[in-house]
């Protein structure tokens, strides 16, 4: 009986060690040289593999960083400036600094403001509705409300609000990876400059129809009246396609455009409540 045990141990041991030897030689033969810095760079990246940088995952981005030898076109929106300076340190290069950004939904067509004119019945994804027809409401530019954006968000930063029927961005979690921007068939998301206290001023509408048409479909549509454009002192507002657009990089957050909008299409968040008498807006401009 004891001999059986010994034989077993010897046989298995022999198989094991010969396999180890074979493996060693095979590993030597098929060894692929890889720049060890790729591993280091990858280690300093967030590891979300979200594709926000434009590369297929963090590894691919790390390879690109090492190979390019120049970080001017490479930026990880998730990790931000800290992460990029870490990468730059590893590679001994100079990283570009960018303002942190956050995804903003440019539609405020809630169930209340934008009544439904027909009922969709079919596979409940925005992409399929978009291919089928213009949507349940009179506005063909607005949010379809099926949450394709929430489904693609890797960071749990997007959730549908059951009351409004619109997705809500959780700014603390949003990394500006841009997945929602790419996914939304109506192209409603925009990456805007991130300010402290979730401060934002933006035109929450993408309806390119003429005023009377879109006003019928949605109460809070931008009707392209240019009032905000005229009141803006910083050239931050541009008009086009019956629509106003506020450039978040030029905007000084003076809040003057908000009250002039006749349809309340310009939304401001994160600011202290307005006093009855206007005082000069505090400087909230952050230079990073």
């Amino acid at each position: 009986m004891n001999m059986t045990i010994i034989y077993t141990v010897i046989t298995l041991g022999a198989i094991g060690s010969s396999a180890a030897v074979i493996l060693y030689f095979v590993a030597q033969k098929f060894k692929v040289y890889e720049d060890p810095r790729i591993d280091d760079v990858e280690g300093s990246l967030p590891g979300a593999n979200c594709g926000g940088c434009g590369y297929a995952g963090c590894r691919a981005f790390a390879e690109a960083c090492v190979k390019e030898g120049d970080l001017s076109d490479l930026y990880c929106p998730v990790g931000g400036n800290d992460c990029m300076s870490g990468v730059a340190k590893i590679l001994g290069l100079e990283a570009v600094k960018k303002d942190p950004r956050v995804a903003v939904l440019r539609c405020n067509g809630t169930c209340e403001f934008r009544p439904r004119v027909n009922a969709y019945d079919g596979a409940a994804t925005c992409a399929i509705i978009h291919a089928t027809y213009s949507g349940e409401t009179g506005c063909q530019y607005g949010c379809l409300g099926c949450g394709d954006c929430c489904a693609v968000c890797e960071f749990d930063a997007l959730h549908m609000d059951p009351v409004t029927g619109l997705p809500v961005v959780d700014e603390d979690k949003c990394t500006a990876c841009g997945a929602c921007v790419r996914e939304c068939p109506k192209n409603l998301f925009e990456l805007r400059k991130k300010l402290p206290k979730h401060r934002k001023i933006y035109v929450a509408c993408r309806n390119e129809d003429k005023g009377p048409v879109n006003k019928k479909a949605c109460e809070v549509a931008c009707i392209g009246c240019s009032k905000c454009f005229k009141v803006c002192e910083y050239d931050a507002i541009t008009m086009g396609n019956n629509l106003a657009f506020i450039d978040s990089d030029k905007c000084k957050f003076c809040r003057k455009c908000v009250p002039v909008c006749p349809t309340n299409a310009i939304i401001e968040t994160g600011f202290p409540p307005r006093r009855v008498k206007e005082e000069p807006a505090e400087s909230t401009q952050v230079t990073s």
Binding site: G122, A123, T125, A127, I128, A131, T132
Partner: peptide
Amino acid sequence: RPLLDYIRF
């Protein structure tokens, strides 16, 4: 099941 909806997509 919405087979064709997804196939078309």
